[in-house]
Simulated scan of single mutants.
Amino acid sequence: MSSAQMVAHHLPYLRRYARALTGSQSSGDAYVAATLEAIVKEPSILADAGKPKVALFRCFTAIWNSLPVNGSSDLVEPDSPAERRLGQLTPKARQAFLLVSLEGFSEEDAAGILDVDLSKIRSLVEEAGRELAAEIATDVLIIEDETFIALDLEGLVESLGHRVVGIARTHSEAVQIAQKKRPGLILADIQLADGSSGLDAVNELLDTFEVPVIFITAYPERFLTGQRPEPAFLIAKPFQPATVSAVVSQALFFERNATRRERRIPA
């Protein structure tokens, strides 16, 4: 693939990222245009790159970060509440969050794009998670049969500014609490204490109201085959607090910015 073909292939994703970063189509596209001009003047930016997409985003980032106006106040007339929430993040944290959460870069590639080390990118994503959580605090239902794990999750989500409305150990408890409290987020284990399924409980609830769900399981490979519709948000046990923090914020952020749709997850 030639450099021109490579740029054309990745250009829609760079536009998406730039628009999310600036909160404005016109402003985002202007930065993309500046990036393309820089590549035309210096084709070697991409010519020897082992990962052309990383190199493209790295070039964009160099241009973005070279301008002192690109602080948290640079968003121009954001078009949606989601974009306004992004505008509250510090610049580096906003970039890290979007690279990992929106564009799907690995932590290693995101670190390369932002020219920071791996520990820094992780701290930036965690920072973004906490800042976003403060903007989109909600009521949380925890479906988990292991007491200590449930308590850990409760403490974690409350530290992010959310409120735990209940902890369920079985399918029936989960349905009962959710129908009464109508949580804004569910954290669910899959295998529950009485042999019932957190997956079945979630599907029953999604038949009555829409809510983002994060599954936390010791067997994530069973639900990441790519062969059927599967959970969008999945955390493997044992989990890291920073991972839960980031995924909670991703789930709430992108759920509120998404088009409404049917969300039944197959068992």
Rank of each mutant, 00 (worst) to 15 (best):
L199W: 02
R16M: 07
E37F: 05
L56K: 03
D115F: 12
Q88S: 13
S249L: 09
R94S: 08
L99T: 07
G104E: 07
R16L: 13
E127Y: 03
F105E: 07
E103L: 15
V175D: 01
I39F: 08
S66A: 15
L67F: 10
L86N: 01
G184F: 06
P81H: 05
Y17G: 05
M1P: 14
A242C: 01
R19E: 15
P266L: 09
I149S: 11
Q5I: 00
E42W: 02
L252D: 04
P43G: 09
D194N: 12
Q88E: 13
L114I: 09
P52T: 07
A133Y: 00
L153P: 02
A111Y: 02
P229S: 08
D189C: 01
E103T: 09
S249Y: 08
E131I: 00
M6A: 13
S24P: 03
A8Q: 14
R122P: 00
R19Y: 02
P68H: 10
Q240S: 13
P231Q: 08
I177E: 01
N257Y: 09
I136K: 01
P43T: 06
V211R: 03
A8V: 04
T243R: 10
D139H: 10
V157E: 04
L118K: 11
R182C: 00
G155P: 00
H171M: 15
S80R: 03
A267I: 12
Q5C: 00
A33N: 11
A30Q: 14
F223N: 08
E158T: 13
S26M: 14
V248G: 03
A168Y: 04
A258G: 12
A150R: 05
P231I: 05
F233W: 15
I235C: 10
R130P: 05
V248Q: 01
T217W: 08
S245F: 04
A93N: 06
L151P: 00
D109V: 03
L206E: 09
S3Q: 11
A201Y: 05
L21S: 04
G166K: 09
S3P: 06
Q191C: 08
S72P: 01
G161L: 04
Q176C: 09
G184D: 02
A188W: 04
G104H: 13
E158K: 12
A8D: 13
L99M: 12
S197T: 10
I167Q: 06
A174P: 03
L11Q: 11
Q179R: 15
S24R: 07
S196V: 05
E83K: 09
G112Q: 12
R263M: 11
I186A: 02
V125H: 01
V76G: 04
A18F: 06
K51R: 14
